[in-house]
C-alpha cells in the first residue's frame, strides 16, 4: 500500500502548520515591507511633484522678476543717460562760458601787460635816447643836453609865427613877482642856462620877465615856458611819440625782438 494514512494525517497537519508559519514569518512581513516601501515611494513622488511644481512656480516668479528688473534697469539706464547728457550739456555750456570769461580776462591782462611793457619800453627808450643824445652832444660838440635844450627853447620862440609870439609876449609881460612865468625842465637848470634864457626873454620882450623855475621829470629831457595859459616848449618827448607810434604798428615783432 503506497498510502500510509497516519503519514497523510501528519503531513496534512504539517502543511497546515507550515501555512500558518509561512504566513506569520514570510508573507506578512514581506508584504508589509513592500506596502510600506510603495507608500514611501508614493509619498516621495508626491513630494517630488510638489517640489517640482514649487520649483516651476519659483522659476516663473524669478523670470518675471528678472524681466521686471531688466525693464527697470533699462528705464533707469535711459533716465541716467538722459540726465548725464543734460548735465554734460550744462557743464559744457558752463565751461564754454568760463573759458570765454577766462579768455576775455586773459586778453585784458595781455592788453594791460602790453601797455605796461609799452610804457616801460618808452621809459627805457627815453632814458637811453637821452643818454645817447647827451653823450653824442658831449662827444661831438662838447655841449650838454641842457644847454641844447635851452638853446632849442630860445630858438623855438624865434621860429614861432608873429601872432603866437605876440600872445606869448602879452602873457609874459603880464607876469609879476607874485605871478611869475613858470619855467619847467626835466633837469636842474644850470645858472648859465637860466641866465641865458632870462637874458633872451628880457631882450625879446623888452622888459624883465619874472621866472619861477621848477624841475619836473615828466617834461622828459625838455624844457617848457608857460604863463597865463600860453606855453612854449621843447622836449625829446615829441620824437619819442613818433617812435612810439612806429612801435604800435606791430607789437608782436618788437616784443619778440
Amino acid at each position: 500500500m503506497l498510502i500510509d494514512w497516519f503519514t497523510v494525517a501528519a503531513q496534512l497537519l504539517n502543511f497546515i502548520i507550515l501555512v500558518y508559519l509561512m504566513k506569520r514569518f514570510l508573507y506578512k512581513p514581506v508584504l508589509d515591507a513592500i506596502a510600506a516601501r510603495e507608500a514611501k515611494i508614493a509619498r516621495e513622488l508626491a513630494d517630488a511633484a510638489e517640489t517640482r511644481a514649487r520649483a516651476h512656480q519659483q522659476q516663473a516668479e524669478f523670470e518675471q522678476k528678472n524681466k521686471t528688473f531688466d525693464e527697470q534697469r533699462a528705464a533707469l539706464l535711459s533716465e541716467a543717460t538722459q540726465a548725464a547728457n543734460t548735465e554734460r550739456e550744462r557743464l559744457l555750456a558752463e565751461a564754454r562760458k568760463a573759458a570765454e570769461v577766462a579768455s576775455k580776462a586773459r586778453a585784458k591782462a595781455l592788453q594791460a601787460d602790453t601797455q605796461a611793457l609799452h610804457g616801460e619800453i618808452v621809459r627805457k627808450t627815453q632814458q637811453r635816447v637821452l643818454e645817447i643824445a647827451r653823450r653824442t652832444l658831449a662827444d661831438l660838440a662838447d655841449v650838454s643836453v641842457e644847454q641844447r635844450a635851452c638853446a632849442m627853447l630860445i630858438q623855438r620862440w624865434h621860429e614861432v609865427d608873429g601872432a603866437t609870439l605876440a600872445a606869448l609876449g602879452t602873457a609874459l609881460k603880464a607876469t609879476s613877482a607874485q605871478t611869475p612865468a613858470l619855467l619847467r625842465s626835466a633837469f636842474d637848470l644850470p645858472p648859465e642856462q637860466l641866465a641865458a634864457i632870462q637874458a633872451a626873454l628880457n631882450e625879446t620882450f623888452g622888459q624883465t620877465i619874472e621866472l619861477k623855475v621848477e624841475t619836473a621829470p615828466e617834461v622828459i629831457s625838455g624844457i617848457e615856458l608857460s604863463a597865463q595859459g600860453q606855453k612854449l616848449a621843447w622836449s625829446i618827448a615829441d620824437y619819442l611819440t613818433a617812435f612810439s607810434d612806429k612801435l604800435d604798428e606791430d607789437p608782436t615783432k618788437w616784443s619778440s625782438a
Binding site: 503531513q11 502548520i17 507550515l18 508559519l21 514569518f25 512581513p29 514581506v30 508589509d32 516601501r37 514611501k40
Partner: peptide, 30 residues
C-alpha cells in the same frame, strides 16, 4: 510511525520557517 517522509518534511519546514524568520527579521522599507 516516524518515517523519512515526516522527518524530511519537518526539516524542510524548519529550513523554510527559520530562513524566513532570519531574513524578515531585518526587513527595510527604504
Amino acid at each position: 510511525k516516524l518515517n523519512a517522509t515526516i522527518v524530511f518534511t519537518w526539516a524542510l519546514m524548519a529550513v523554510l520557517v527559520v530562513g524566513s524568520m532570519l531574513i524578515t527579521r531585518r526587513l527595510t522599507t527604504g
